[in-house]
Design a protein around this nucleic acid. Structure first.
Lengths: 180, 180
DNA sequence: ATTTCTGCAAAGATTTTGCAGGGGA
DNA sequence: TCCCCTGCAAAATCTTTGCAGAAAT
């Protein structure tokens, strides 16, 4: 029934699901549904470093003909995050973003407060990750994730000298996340 | 009219306002109002490390008899943040928090995903702060703030083994932010 | 056959905004 | 006096939830 994942050969009923997720679901008495599979699949298809909001995810679902409701998108994002499959990101934007948790090189984000552009940088030699572990341990925490976020103005917005970055540019509508 | 601040001797019209803020307001053609003064004063009175949400701030305003509307609280929080007087914090909670920006030792946060407790740790020798500056510069960003946030489970919640931390505990009602 | 999930629509929570009147500079 | 600010209420966003039917094990 189940199968381990090595590269990309997936079975029918649980495509390329990393074995751990399927197990995690079962462990909790949860079920593997078409919606959950599809959502995870979408995250896998995104270029590395993509982070989707609930609305963006839903748009991609609709786009591919999978009629998954927005409510389910929200529920699944929360579920997959609590399972450790997704990482929840909070830029100071008014809504959350999610990205697939890779087991390769961890990365962190730089966010432009002017245009909401985000740039990633890698946590080479896992320095930040390990710092998070150490500091957390010092305070008796079981660390789940450590996020280093740098807020600032990109070269673009710095030139435009937008003194009140929260006003105009961060339109907070649908598909933001532009260029650079 | 204006006055520099040294220790705590404040004038009547602009209590202990750090001179820089008053200047920043003027520089932008903004005004020094009773509401803005009072809000900043409240932040100053909080024990170091306190971070208030808009609702919490508003409660404190009402509590002291200053009838400042919630809308103004929101507007002022945004304004003071954009002026650099406050730091906007985003724990994965559904609403933002704000804390006074001190010029002394910078600090960062550990957040329990179970009970929303936050613990602070100091960024001794400004290591994280400087890292933020360096990394930002590398990507041509003007760095405004760098936040290192560690998410995990505190000893309490770890024992309670709340496998789905987003569900029950984070009630997302009013005054959360408890103990520890 | 159970028990979990989903979709829908409605409710909830947080934050922003239009407008008319009040108040700094 | 000028025009920025505030309060109020309404609106806009984002997210969660109750319920009945659908689906997974």
């Amino acid at each position: 029934m189940v199968h381990r994942h090595t590269t990309e050969t997936g079975s029918v009923e649980s495509r390329e699901l990393p074995q751990s997720l399927y197990d995690n679901l079962r462990k909790r008495g949860l079920r593997l549904t078409y919606q959950r599979e599809t959502i995870l699949e979408i995250f896998r298809e995104q270029p590395s470093g993509t982070h989707l909001s609930a609305e963006e995810l839903h748009a991609k679902l609709v786009e591919r003909g999978a009629s998954v409701s927005l409510a389910t998108a929200y529920r699944t994002l929360n579920l997959l995050s609590s399972l450790g499959a997704l990482r929840e990101l909070d830029f100071a934007e008014g809504h959350k973003h999610y990205e697939l948790k890779h087991d390769n090189l961890p990365h962190q984000h730089i966010v432009c407060l002017g245009c909401n552009t985000t740039v990633e940088f890698e946590d080479e030699d896992h320095f930040l990750e390990e710092s998070g572990q150490k500091i957390g341990a010092r305070y008796n925490f079981e660390v789940i994730d450590a996020q280093f976020k740098i807020f600032g103005l990109c070269c673009h917005c710095r030139q435009a000298k937008q003194l009140c970055p929260k006003q105009a540019p961060a339109k907070r509508t649908k598909g933001i996340e532009v260029n650079l």
